[in-house]
Amino acid sequence: MELNEDVVADVRKRLRRAQGQVGGLIQMMEDGRDCRDVIIQLAAVSRALDRAGFRLIASGLQQCLSDDSAQGTADREQLEKLFLALA
């Protein structure tokens, strides 16, 4: 799969941010932080992951699934399944 380098850099940045947030969540739980604070941070991690996934969709999911035919069109059912996996 070949994606635009700008897209890859953006998704990588989003995933690293989410990775840091997960580490923060673990630390918050180990420190016994208030459950509301933990839930707010958990929601932020979830949004960060969603944004990374949707960025991939917006920038060429069809390219990821294109077949070897001359047209290179993706199967609509496969596209729907991947989109719903993120929803």
Rank of each mutant, 00 (worst) to 15 (best):
M1E: 15
E2R: 12
E2P: 05
L3D: 10
L3Y: 15
N4C: 09
E5L: 08
D6G: 10
V7I: 06
V7Q: 01
V8N: 02
V8E: 12
R17T: 15
A18L: 12
A18S: 15
A18Y: 11
Q19D: 10
G20H: 08
G20S: 08
Q21W: 09
Q21F: 11
G23K: 12
G24V: 01
I26R: 14
Q27E: 09
M28R: 01
E30Y: 10
D31N: 11
R33L: 06
D34S: 09
C35N: 04
D37C: 05
D37Q: 09
D37N: 04
V38R: 06
I40E: 11
I40L: 10
L42Q: 12
A44L: 04
A44G: 06
A44P: 05
S46P: 01
S46Y: 09
R47S: 11
A48P: 06
A48H: 07
D50S: 06
D50P: 00
D50C: 00
R51I: 01
A52L: 01
G53W: 04
G53L: 02
G53V: 00
G53R: 02
F54I: 09
R55Q: 14
L56A: 07
L56G: 05
I57R: 08
A58Y: 08
G60K: 02
G60I: 00
L61C: 10
L61K: 05
L61S: 07
L61P: 06
Q62R: 11
Q62P: 02
Q63N: 14
C64I: 02
L65K: 02
D67N: 08
D67H: 06
D68H: 05
G72S: 04
G72H: 07
D75Q: 12
R76E: 12
E80T: 08
K81S: 02
L82Q: 05
L84I: 02
L84K: 10
A85F: 13
L86F: 07
A87C: 13
A87K: 10
